[in-house]
């Protein structure tokens, strides 16, 4: 990209985090084929996540869940004009290299896929394409940012249609950030140790009261009210996985969640778009889960 005319820089933290900034206030939708990608874009999605099976199907089918077929990712890239994201397994930097070579716009190092490394996440600084990672608490979020993640999503519990874990994780991250802002300088060393997070990032959060990258929400959002709830709890955008294409009327559900995300403070709009929407995905009560995906990642 560099030329004699233009001493420009690609892959800087600013341009990587900048794309996440552009997605704020939007909905990122899981899609498994070009037809769904088109529906998502038509409905006003700000990006799509290309994957072979939505999390609820991964849950049902069992087995090892891996990166998607490049052919399918290319077809989706050819279909839509919005950013296309794709998932790599935790620690599987070779899958991430493949995704970067496909020019995906964001890589999700995701607990929804079967982890490839039970100790180490990907060194995300080594990539030009930005990464999003999940987190259940502030320490996990800051470890991922320390490894180079440019966007954090609270994990929730993917594929359940149940928002309870997303709420737990968002509230935990926010409460832990508030605790840092009221700590004095000496306390931050011990708090960094407790959080198992890089000290410099802990000090930054203590100063600013916010993560150094945007915070989105994922895992269990399946109605317009769910979107409004997590945005009011501090999420800046939402990832919706199974919630759209496992509902009765995916086109309307997609449109409704987009509207509710923009107008999350206006209960009248949320009520209007929720009216006559048909059934949301059936969902699973989390106490009955055999596999908690949110526990993957360290």
């Amino acid at each position: 990209m560099n030329s004699p005319h233009d001493p420009s820089t690609i892959g800087s933290a600013l341009v990587k985090r900048g794309l996440a900034d552009m997605l704020r206030g939007g909905v990122i939708m899981d899609v498994v084929n070009p037809e769904q990608a088109k529906i998502a874009e038509d409905a006003g999605a700000v990006a799509v996540m290309a994957l072979e099976r939505v999390p609820s199907d991964i849950r049902r089918d069992g087995g090892v869940a891996r990166m998607s077929d490049p052919q399918m990712i290319r077809e989706i890239q050819a279909t839509v004009t919005i950013p296309v994201m794709a998932k790599a397994r935790i620690g599987h930097f070779a899958e991430a290299q493949v995704l970067q070579s496909l020019d995906v716009d964001y890589i999700d190092e995701s607990e929804v896929l079967t982890p490839a490394d039970e100790e180490n996440h990907i060194d995300k600084w080594a990539f030009t394409v930005p990464f999003v990672c999940g987190a259940t608490n502030l320490g996990e979020a800051l470890r991922r940012i320390g490894e180079g993640a440019c966007l954090i999503r609270s994990k929730g519990e993917a594929g359940t249609g149940n928002v309870v874990e997303a709420v737990r994780h968002l509230r935990t991250i926010n409460a832990q950030m508030r605790r840092l802002t009221s700590a004095d300088d000496a306390e931050l060393f011990a708090l960094a140790k407790d959080l198992q997070a890089p000290l410099a990032l802990v000090q930054e959060v203590a100063r600013t009261g916010a993560l150094p990258v945007p915070l989105f929400c994922a895992g269990g959002i399946s109605t317009p009210s769910d979107a409004s709830l997590v945005l009011q709890l501090g999420a800046e955008a939402v990832f919706v996985g199974s919630g759209i294409f496992k509902s009765d009327d995916p086109v309307r559900m997609a449109q409704a969640i987009v509207e509710a995300t923009t107008h999350y403070l206006d209960a009248g709009v949320v009520a209007k778009v929720s009216t006559g929407l048909g059934a949301a995905m059936k969902g699973i009560e989390t106490a009955s889960l055999e596999q908690r995906l949110a526990e993957r990642g360290w």
Binding site: L14, V15, L19, T81
Partner: peptide, 13 residues
């Protein structure tokens, strides 16, 4: 749209 390329080509100058 995206005349300067996809995200991998995003740049500062």
């Amino acid at each position: 749209r995206n005349g300067y390329g996809r995200q991998i080509a995003s740049f500062e100058s």
